[in-house]
Design a protein around this nucleic acid. Structure first.
Lengths: 137, 137
DNA sequence: CCGCATCCGTCACGATACTG
DNA sequence: CAGTATCGTGACGGATGCGG
């Protein structure tokens, strides 16, 4: 394992930020980007600017409350840009900031890895799911 | 952004696993590896085999319950190897499996990015924290 | 109808105490 | 040292209400 964090000194405390410290702000940001919905929202937005409803349709299963909360959090972290258009009907666009794109670039390989490494299990799931797809919508 | 997931077809649904599907098993695995404590435990174990107490000391702020739960989950996911030595006093070693090392390799850049991008805020935090350390304990 | 805030129920999380 | 059992709280999730 040449990729040890020790080699990089990441967790040795010789860097200013240390995610292993409970009160370090880096822990908060890490929690946000790796949160249950945060990662999915970020990855969804990697496709470009999206409207509220669009993001909601991408991240299936998320509630309106969590979507709003997640978007607000990511916005305050400077990862997501929120643009409100004062039109009727109301239109709000969400997109990734420069920082947001940086994180997503690191997030994508992880999501891809997970996707690949659940392929075996997913085959069975998809097989059963496809049959039930008609009933579940 | 040439790294769009569209280009890879990751979220297009043409891969067997799709993290955007609420019931897809890949979502579970993603939640596990990106969970609040999961990522920290995995990164900690990237330093090599550790004992229970060691991991606990690395991941500051984690409770015994969460540590046990997280380790069990990661073990069931095939990311962490748990070795029980029937000795007195009891000794249990935790290490990364081959798959675990793969995920950590993808997790480290993310953690590193977070660390770097909170450096500015952390300076103020460290400065204030060091000063307040005396009063707050 | 879209975007989002609020109330409330539920469950995982967190602290403590206890066992082998 | 390495966990397990128990109980309280806060965050999450669902439904509802409001403004444009």
């Amino acid at each position: 394992m040449e990729e040890s964090i020790e080699a990089k000194g990441l967790a040795r405390g010789n860097l200013s930020a240390n995610v292993f410290e409970p009160n370090c702000p880096s822990r908060l940001l890490l929690d946000h980007v790796t949160s249950r919905w945060g990662v999915l929202v970020l990855v969804a937005l990697s496709n470009g600017t999206m409207r509220w409803g669009e993001v909601r349709r991408w991240v299936k299963g998320i509630t309106e409350k969590m979507l709003a909360s997640t978007l607000r959090t990511l916005e305050s972290d400077g990862l997501v840009l929120r643009e409100v258009h004062p039109v009727v009907p109301p239109r709000v666009d969400y997109s990734l900031t420069e920082r947001g794109r940086e994180v997503v670039a690191l997030l994508l390989p992880l999501v891809e890895w997970v996707t690949v490494h659940t392929a075996a299990e997913t085959e069975a799931w998809a097989a059963a799911g496809t049959a039930a797809e008609e009933s579940t919508g």
